[in-house]
């Protein structure tokens, strides 16, 4: 019974991690049809921001939750200006340019901070379920994933900025004719996506440790989750994370972490064969 509870918690926390690391990519892809392969490095920058700020004596929660999105959001603004803006509508070129950016960021951070693992230990301690110990931070991550998804949903649904963003997403020309500047909407969207990635980096920093190459561990998973999710960015990411995260965690328990990842990838392939437009290409099509 205790074991079942722990497994269930682990599944939920696997799903939550997937939601957190995918959300920034999903916003950028869902709104702008831009696949940002430097997403993993945005996470990494968020992680570094958190660790460096904490090392300089900043309060842990400010270092984890406040500073990373601000810093990485600013980076996002610069990247959009210099790189993404020149490549709108050229999906493959954008992917390749952001891949270059990802390499450059890995290289730059390695030069600045070296190639060693740093990190902060997970705060909040443990509680026990029977004979098992569960980290409270894992539970915190589940609530963070929920809060983030709800925040994105609320911003898109209820604020004027969200309305403009959704309108531009549906029909950029029409929005432009109605007096909205799509360029500006895209710039803000990209910065918001980058900020979400930065926040994700801060959130997972206590779990994964921070190295210049930490992004590569997440980019493939996030990419696959977002694509499997399909057109509706929030519902798609949530359903895909739910499915892929559970499969991966269950297989990790049954076999090894490696086969957990392999199972995740195989399920994604089969799913795309059955639903070529992603989960929300078939189900829940009118959702956000």
């Amino acid at each position: 019974m205790d074991y079942a509870a722990v497994v269930a918690l682990q599944i939920l926390s696997g799903v939550a991690t997937l939601v957190i690391v995918s959300l920034g990519l999903a916003v950028v892809f869902g709104m702008m049809r831009v696949i940002n392969l430097a997403h993993g490095e945005f996470l990494m920058l968020g992680g570094y921001t958190a660790v460096l700020a904490y090392g300089r004596g900043v309060n842990l929660w400010i270092a984890l939750l406040i500073l990373p999105p601000i810093v990485v959001g600013l980076v996002g603004i610069v990247v959009e200006r210099l790189l993404i803006r020149r490549l709108y509508g050229r999906m493959i070129d954008t992917m390749l340019a952001t891949w270059g950016l990802s390499l450059a960021l890995i290289g730059g951070v390695t030069m600045l901070f070296g190639n060693s693992v740093t990190g902060v230990s997970a705060p909040l301690g443990n509680f026990s379920v029977g004979q098992f110990h569960v980290s409270v931070y894992d539970i915190f991550l589940m609530f963070a994933a929920m809060a983030l998804s709800m925040a994105v949903w609320a911003v898109l649904k209820f604020t004027p900025a969200g309305l403009l963003a959704r309108g531009t997403m549906q029909n950029a020309e029409m929005a432009s004719a109605l007096g909205v500047a799509p360029d500006r909407v895209y710039a803000v969207t990209f910065a918001a996506g980058a900020a979400l990635s930065g926040l994700a980096g801060g959130l997972i920093a206590p779990l994964s440790g921070v190295v210049p190459t930490m992004g590569t561990a997440f980019i493939a998973k996030a990419f696959i989750t977002v694509i499997t999710g399909g057109a509706a960015m929030l519902t798609g990411t949530l359903t895909a994370s739910g499915l892929l995260g559970s499969v991966s965690t269950i297989f990790t328990f049954l076999t090894t972490p490696v086969f957990g990842e392999v199972a995740l990838l195989i399920v994604a392939i089969v799913l795309l064969r059955l639903l070529p437009r992603g989960i929300t290409g078939r189900f829940l099509r009118r959702s956000l």
């Binding site: 790189l83 020149r86 490549l87 070129d93 270059g100 450059a104 890995i106 290289g107």
Partner: peptide
């Protein structure tokens, strides 16, 4: 990596 990344971005642009 930094050099390569910059070259790739330049190549695409």
């Amino acid at each position: 990596n930094l050099l390569l990344g910059v070259v790739f971005m330049a190549a695409v642009l």
